[in-house]
C-alpha cells in the first residue's frame, strides 16, 4: 500500500473573518490581516454547495480553500452564505406553462418567482442538462441560465411537459 496520500491544505477557519464593507462587498481578514475584496467560488456547485469553497482576491489569485463553511464563526458564515447566494443566484423555474416548438426553436413559457417569463432554447440535447442531483439546467439562446432544483418534485403538469425533451 502506498502511504503517500494526497493532502490538501485548507484555510484555517478560526483565523478567517468575513464581513461586508460599507459598499456591500465581501472582504476577508486572515489573522487580522486584511485581504481586501474577495470572491467565493464553489468547487462543487450542485452537490456540495457549502464545502470546498475557493477564496480568490479581486485579481483572481487564490488565497486558499475553505473545507466547510460551517467551520466559520456565525457572523462570517452568514456573510459567506449571503455572498454565495448572490454569486450563484439562478432563476428558479417553479412551473412550466407551455413548451412550443417552431422550426427547431423551443419557446418556453415558465413561472419564475411568481412572474411569467418566456425564453427560447435551441438544440435541446445541449441546452437541457440534468445533473447527478436531479437538477435540471436550461440555457436559453441569449446565454441565460435557469434551474429546476429537483425535476422529480416539480408539479406533475410541468413534468409532463418537460419529459419528452429530457435526454
Amino acid at each position: 500500500m502506498n502511504d503517500n496520500k494526497l493532502s490538501l491544505e485548507f484555510l484555517k477557519t478560526d483565523e478567517c473573518s468575513f464581513s461586508f464593507n460599507q459598499n456591500g462587498f465581501l472582504v476577508l481578514s486572515v489573522d487580522g490581516e486584511s485581504k481586501g475584496r474577495i470572491k467565493l467560488i464553489r468547487s462543487y456547485p450542485y452537490s456540495l454547495t457549502d464545502e470546498y469553497i475557493c477564496v480568490h482576491d479581486i485579481e483572481d489569485n487564490e488565497i486558499g480553500i475553505i473545507r466547510d463553511l460551517k467551520e466559520l464563526d456565525e457572523s462570517s458564515l452568514n456573510c459567506a452564505l449571503k455572498e454565495l447566494q448572490n454569486r450563484y443566484y439562478c432563476p428558479t423555474i417553479t412551473s412550466v406553462k407551455s413548451i412550443k416548438e417552431r422550426m427547431g426553436h423551443f419557446y418556453f413559457d415558465v413561472v419564475i418567482d411568481g412572474k411569467e417569463k418566456s425564453f427560447t432554447v435551441r438544440d435541446l440535447t445541449r441546452n437541457l442538462r440534468s445533473t447527478n442531483e436531479n437538477t435540471l439546467l436550461i440555457f436559453d439562446m441569449d446565454g441565460n441560465r435557469y434551474i429546476i432544483p429537483n425535476q422529480e418534485k416539480i408539479e406533475p403538469k410541468s413534468r409532463r411537459l418537460l419529459e419528452p425533451y429530457l435526454y
Binding site: 459598499n23 479581486i58 443566484y89 436559453d140 441569449d142 446565454g143 441560465r145 435557469y146 434551474i147
Partner: peptide, 27 residues
C-alpha cells in the same frame, strides 16, 4: 460575471462600488 447573473461595478479612489446587476445573457 457570476453564475447566471453579472454585476456592473465601478472603482473610485481604489474602492469598489456597485452599479447594478443583470442577467448573464446581457453580459
Amino acid at each position: 460575471q457570476y453564475l447566471a447573473t453579472g454585476q456592473l461595478t465601478y472603482k473610485y479612489n481604489e474602492e469598489y462600488f456597485s452599479l447594478g446587476y443583470f442577467s448573464i445573457g446581457l453580459l
